[in-house]
Design a binder for these strands. Structure first.
Lengths: 238, 238
DNA sequence: TTATAGCATTTGTGATCAAATGATCACAAA
DNA sequence: TTTGTGATCATTTGATCACAAATGCTATAA
């Protein structure tokens, strides 16, 4: 498998997909990029995504895009219009409440299971994330802030060892993407102005973890979700 | 769209897809059938489903099957093998516990929300299902029994009005399919022998609903899931 | 001016084919 | 007997094309 003769001059594609894990198919790359963009709230609600359009953007044929879109639709991250086009779901207060209610019970359980199983190394990671958040807070990039928040939460959830819960939470966060967009555009200025401390609750969570007060960790996670919900609800249309 | 001239003799297909809702594409039909089969436990765990094989079975080309499989994989109802083939997940005791733990918190919440909102008409429907179950219990068809059980639970859950929860529960039940298969093969004889009363707990739930004892309804739902879990765990491999 | 029929454009669906990849098995060498 | 190598096969992935459905627009007539 070494010294492969140069018969393998594959394609003209040069898209820089993230870290190549293993057997990275084109469709996977498209899917991952779209998924990440959706979760971070980089698309507008109600925006319609066409197969041909995205295929052109990514420089691939229609097939990979087609399957990636269907996959996201199956996860309820996208809606299918009457003609088959995919659309980013619209945001509503009712849906926000619905999502948060589900997030609370599922993430509370994942915390309950995960918190006691966090290793000292995990705790170090969490602390690292918090201090990075403080840095970034003074900086400007809202998307890395969102990513850090994501890492913080999922480090705890993953410790639960529950594949089922992890997947459930991932689909919930995916559907939460459009609301994240509102956070980006409306709350980012507050953070920059120092009126909001994004890592505040995370610090409390780390403290509770260090004193092994797992019930409080759970409560803080729930409070974190509820707080986000309260911030976002008045921003929803009408 | 009526009086379609017979230009539309599409394929040699005669698959009796269920109720045609609207804009029924071939891929939707394949998807629905596979989904139903999976949820009812009509596939063997670890069974591998190839695109070409299913395409032949359904009498379609590969495309619709391909997309249906990807869709199911996105819902974690199927696993993707290293070569890209789709496989029915294997059953393990650990996964059973993991699934049931998640089912309990999510379905408990859906019950909590749904039970108080059930209309008198809904109650009639529930009673109807219970009595049908009693009939079928003496009969032999385990799959209709499974379907009735499904209808009973989802009638309550749907009353919650929470799209998010419904969708979560559906994917959980989908992943529960392989375990349902074990129920079919191992428990069916017991039911036929009269050693197990499938509708027992459902009767209790209806009673609790009529007396508006919603906390008890919730407890009964949880007990229902736990009971199934206990029955199935010893049946899991090794 | 408005309503409607018809056309054009956009977009997805399904079929077919070529290319690439992983799995399997046989055979040879240590 | 065991291990490494190569060939073959099964299967997916991606591209392209024909077709159908939906949408929007324009022109024409009332």
């Amino acid at each position: 498998m070494i010294a492969s003769d140069t018969k393998k001059e594959n394609a003209s594609v040069d898209m820089s997909f993230g870290p190549v894990s293993s057997r990275t198919t084109i469709q996977d790359g498209v899917y991952q990029q779209l998924r990440q963009a959706l979760m971070n709230g980089q698309f507008n609600p109600a925006q319609s995504l066409t197969i041909a359009g995205l295929a052109e953007t990514f420089g691939t044929s229609n097939m990979p895009v087609r399957e990636a879109l269907r996959r996201l639709a199956a996860e309820n991250a996208l809606e299918i219009a009457s003609n088959g086009s995919a659309r980013v779901p619209v945001v509503t207060a009712a849906r926000l409440d619905d999502l948060c209610r589900a997030r609370i019970v599922v993430e509370a359980l994942a915390t309950e299971l995960g918190a006691p199983r966090l290793t000292p190394k995990d705790l170090e990671i969490l602390k690292g994330i918090v201090s990075e958040q403080k840095e970034i807070g003074r900086d400007k990039n809202i998307y890395t802030l969102i990513t850090k928040n994501q890492q913080f939460h999922f480090t705890i959830y993953r410790a639960s060892g529950s594949d089922v819960l992890i997947q459930l939470i991932e689909t919930l966060w995916l559907r939460f993407g459009p609301y994240m967009r509102m956070l980006s555009t409306h709350v980012a200025p507050l953070i920059r102005a120092g009126e909001s401390e994004p890592s505040g609750r995370h610090i409390a969570i780390v403290e509770a973890l260090e004193s092994k007060d797992f019930a409080r960790v759970r409560e803080e996670i729930i409070a974190d979700i509820s707080a986000t919900q309260e911030v976002l609800r008045p921003l929803c249309p009408e």
